[in-house]
Amino acid sequence: MNKNCLLCGVGGQGVVLASRLIAYAAMEKGYFARTAETIGMAQRGGSVVSHVRIGERIYSPQVPVGSADVILAFEAGEAVRCLPWLKKDGLVIADRRIVKPVTASLGGGNYSAEEMTGYLKKHADRLILVDGDAICREAGSSKVLNVALLGAAAQSGALGITPEEMLDAVRKNVKEKYIALNEKALMLGRKAGGM
């Protein structure tokens, strides 16, 4: 099995943890994994991309353009930005919300969620749009979008990791007091992913 997954969002959304959880789950199945992360200055509100690569004969830590099996987008506009990485027939799972940068609030351009999701609908071969707002409200925390997206990805089967395996990875890597919350988020994500 060789799988490439790109995770994208804005600094502070929990992108890095999500990429580690995918790699952990893959390694529990005996696969070799590589990830690449954005750390440092770019984290301060900047675009953040994590790469996860699973399988054999992988050299580069970054997913080559045009070869992502899955793009997990924590923000709709970042999904648009990363779309060139998607391979033909690849799957995009994206929160339908956008995060406005300071530059947009200062009066630069009309950045709209509808335009972003519209573009994704037109150009992604397979697309799951997730209502992150509703999921976070139902789960009772704004911090669980990452695990919800993992639930949707596991449910889709596109990562080669089952929902049970993903649940196991979450349980083993999340602080004890947050396990119940994240289990709930994972389940809400699975429902969004078509369970």
Binding site: Q43, R44, G45, T103, M116, Y119
Partner: peptide, 14 residues
């Protein structure tokens, strides 16, 4: 062709 204009996200003070 039709890529919508994407916001730049320069790093900012938190």
């Amino acid at each position: 062709d039709d890529i919508p204009e994407l916001p730049v996200r320069p790093p900012v003070l938190c």
